[in-house]
Design a protein around this nucleic acid. Structure first.
Lengths: 340, 340
DNA sequence: CTTGTCAGTTGAAAGCTTTCAAGTGCAATC
DNA sequence: GATTGCACTTGAAAGCTTTCAACTGACAAG
């Protein structure tokens, strides 16, 4: 590969001039500029991102740290971030934490040696991101938090309006006629899981109802958790007529539990999910769910980050994206049978 | 961040010695080695991957180029690759091509300036990878192809045994009693799509049957394609009693087409998919499918690549992973009605 | 005591870019 | 015609590591 020296020689200018042309960092007279551009074209020259990064103390790489690309919610976020990053000349380094904060920490430490321009992070369970991000921020590296926030996070963030989404979904369940509502919530140390529960409770309060403690079950955000906890709920007397799942993966487990208990959804038990993944319309019955756009989460985060890199000095932004309700067939009015 | 010079000073040794200790590149007497290690520990020193990459003409980054992380088959591959890469000290830069070979080319060109240690590529439609990889190979960068191969690919590759998988699946359909078999194949310029068709044809030949040309429909690997082509197949007389979909996404479209045509699966039409995605067990009826492990595709590719980076000079390897049949409820014996 | 050997250690050079202080040449001004 | 100012241009330095030729010191052999 040609290097800058070669270009300088071909264009009969100095190294500095080539750099100025390439970075628009100084006025260069048109005829020289053209000579340089011609030489670049001819030699198929591309600047070494390594040398540039080394000199500038910053690369065009964005570190993206997520729990697990295999979880169907995250690919959309990553794709959104990648599209926006790429369009602005940035590349994405992808790291999976499996929700393990030790692994997250390892990634954070290691990533530093690549001098990334910024970080987009979906924090792990019990993330120590707030402390770590301090190091990055000191080095001038932006960090944007997505989907959920670690303890004491004061930096930029993009999340869905989890509380409002859950509120609306619960209102809908109430409006359809349900009174015995249960919720299987995600890990309550995760802000998004907590907000969803808050929304649920708020709707219940609005309706002047009460929820028995055992009607609220906590589990991890996956199918198995949903399955296990749903089995517990379905054995309660009176049996809840509707189960609000903390996310769609949990909802999948709930549907299975209902089926395997010899019950029917929605006739015996209604189910509401959260996330509105592609799979929501494949289940039987198709799953009603609170819709949020992972893709938009990703693009928004990347935009904020890139804004920072371009010098945006405004105070931390906390973007909260609207959710909407995707109504399918997993929710129906309760039959009298169900209510004791 | 401390740099190597600082470490050298703290440990009272030369720059070279620090480097030797860190890279095990020369024998260093124990007491010096210890001094260096102590200093590294104390200063929390981590070598700059940029400077190292610049000097060595090679980084610890692996470029991963895939069509679209949002397509449910690919996250598994990426995760497999990332796990293996990470375990060996490599990082993954993720690039989506949307199956557009121009975008692929852009990624390939740009990635070069990061001096990646290697590339793991799922080629786009009409990929020009073979030519591009030549440049990389010349620079000592390994390239491994996954899932499907571009024209004239002679380098390392990891694919599923698409032909054998399709062969077995088709045999199964035949064994269940189907005689009027149709297939909706993926784009025939993709080797995996072609191999699956070959397997299908082979099984048909074995059974001394014939397939009418209109029973084989080609489309892109997605739901919509499957839907459109299935509608065509379902209007044929005689109507096929079983449809083999080129992948699970196509199968989703087929299921929808069957439902919307007022037919039932599997009573009226049996459906077989390929890939055995997580969603296969969610459809109604649950989808029988040829199972292949994306994760294993990813780990295997990364292992081969890392082997190359460690100096493996053996001739190109073409690993073909076994598939298996996941039998669910979307396939049943044909009713006499269906056969004219 | 000299010489040779060898393991271990050193410091400079190279890798490619950006940045900055210093330099060049031209035009305008007096 | 000399001077000043301006607008570019230049080349060296810096950023951090690896590598290699050269060096050091110790020890063995003659």
């Amino acid at each position: 590969m040609a290097n800058m020296k070669d270009i300088a020689k071909i264009a009969r200018v100095s190294l500095g001039t080539v750099s100025h042309v390439l970075n628009n960092s100084a006025n260069v007279r048109p005829h020289l500029r053209e000579r340089v551009l011609d030489a670049v074209q001819k030699a198929g020259y591309q600047p070494s991102q390594l040398a540039r990064g080394l000199r500038r103390d910053k690369t065009n790489v964005i570190g993206m740290i997520i729990p697990d690309i295999t979880n169907p919610f995250f690919p959309g976020v990553v794709r959104g971030a990648e599209d926006t990053a790429f369009a602005n000349g940035y590349r994405l380094i992808l790291c999976n934490t499996d929700n393990d904060h030790a692994k997250e920490l390892a990634h954070l430490k290691e990533l530093q040696t690549y001098l990334p321009a910024g970080l987009i992070v979906i924090p792990s369970n019990f993330s120590d991101l707030t402390a770590q991000a301090e190091c990055y921020r000191k080095a001038g590296t932006g960090v944007v938090c997505v989907d959920r926030l670690p303890r004491n996070w004061a930096g930029d963030s993009v999340t869905a309006d989890n509380q409002e989404g859950a509120l609306e979904a619960t209102r809908y369940l109430l409006q359809v006629g349900h009174r015995e509502l249960a919720m299987i919530v995600g890990p309550q140390h995760l802000t998004n899981a907590k907000d969803r529960l808050n929304g649920f409770r708020k709707a219940i309060r609005e309706a002047k109802l009460h929820v028995k403690p055992e009607y609220i079950q906590e589990t991890s955000f996956d199918k198995n958790g949903g399955y296990t906890k749903a089995l517990i709920l379905l054995r309660l007397i009176p049996r809840p007529t509707a189960i609000f799942a903390g996310n769609d993966m949990i909802a999948l487990g709930v549907l299975r539990a209902i089926r395997e208990s010899g019950l029917r959804c929605p006739e015996d038990v209604s189910v509401m999910g959260f996330d509105d993944l592609d799979i929501a319309e494949l289940t039987s019955p198709p799953l009603s769910s609170v819709s949020q756009s992972g893709y938009q989460l990703g693009t928004t985060a990347a935009h904020i980050l890139i804004g920072r890199l371009h010098g945006d000095k405004n105070p931390a932004r906390h973007i909260v994206l609207k959710t909407s309700l995707s109504i399918r067939n997993s929710v129906a009015a309760p039959t009298d049978m169900g209510v004791s």
